[in-house]
Computed example of a mutant assay.
Amino acid sequence: MKIDLRAKSFGGRAVLGPIRLQVARGQRVALLGPSGIGKSTLLRIIAGLDRDFDGRVEGSDRLAIVFQEPTLLPWRRALENIIIAAGCDAATARDLMAQVGLAGREAHYPRQLSLGQQRRLALARAFAAGPDILLMDEPFASLDPETAARMIGLTAGLLERSGAGLILVTHDDSEPARLAATPLVLGGDPAVIGG
């Protein structure tokens, strides 16, 4: 995947400046920087969720995204949340639920799961899609340290087993090392890598 961003503006104000980035399957990078600098905006552009920018994103890589909030379907059971969103079979969904420690909770609705369990379900759903590159937008924020550490460990294991690449947005400068990701710092006005 190649990102060649020239500019991104909101209401006439330039938020992101020239950014060139290339990420391949198996490669891991983390976007760091202060709150409001444009990390999540850049991730949304990469994901194809924001098309109003000057530049281009190229590549045929299969992407999956994990947001800060789990974004689950509240009216569907846990297993269905994976099958419907990822388009996988029930066996794959059950296997991934087991890998993230949710075996036996297939019939639970999201409201019957703790926040940590919901985030693990969202992680299983992302990997069920078979991504070449996993996009994560502060997925460990607002978790207690023990739960965050467990989630980071689960993510690292799933990345290793799947061979997927990673683009992680985070405020925590310890997370890139824990996920073997190269840190890239956004700074400046408009923001650029290394600015």
Rank of each mutant, 00 (worst) to 15 (best):
M136K: 00
Q27A: 10
P70G: 07
Q117F: 08
R6S: 13
A7G: 04
A30P: 09
R51P: 09
L31P: 02
A85L: 09
I152L: 10
A177H: 00
R28A: 06
D172V: 07
S9H: 11
K39Q: 13
R150C: 14
L121M: 12
P139R: 03
R6C: 07
E106S: 07
Q27L: 08
P176G: 01
A90C: 06
A91Q: 14
L5Q: 08
L121A: 08
A191T: 07
F127S: 04
R125G: 06
A141W: 06
G157T: 04
R178N: 05
F53S: 05
R56Y: 12
G17Y: 06
G33T: 11
I133E: 00
L159P: 02
D189T: 14
P18G: 15
P145D: 06
P74G: 06
A86L: 03
I65E: 02
G130D: 02
F67R: 09
R20V: 06
A107Q: 15
D144L: 12
E80M: 11
P183H: 03
I84T: 14
T147C: 07
I65P: 01
I193S: 07
I152S: 02
A91D: 10
P34V: 15
P145Y: 09
A64W: 04
S9R: 13
D132K: 03
L43A: 04
Q68K: 04
D173R: 10
K39L: 14
D54H: 11
A24S: 08
F127M: 09
S142Y: 12
R62L: 01
Q68M: 02
E106G: 06
A126E: 13
G130R: 00
R13Q: 15
L113S: 01
D144R: 05
E138F: 09
A149K: 14
A156K: 14
G17L: 07
E69F: 10
I167K: 01
A128L: 03
L113F: 01
K39N: 12
A47C: 05
L42D: 01
G17H: 05
R120H: 11
L73F: 15
G17M: 07
A86N: 03
A90D: 13
L16F: 05
I37R: 14
R178P: 04
R77C: 11
D4V: 12
E146A: 15
V23H: 00
Q112K: 05
A180I: 02
R119W: 07
G38C: 15
R105P: 02
G188C: 09
D50Q: 09
R119N: 03
A126R: 08
A177R: 05
Y109G: 01
R119P: 01
G195Y: 11
P131S: 09
R119A: 02
G11K: 08
Q99R: 15
G38L: 14
V15C: 07
G165A: 02
D173C: 05
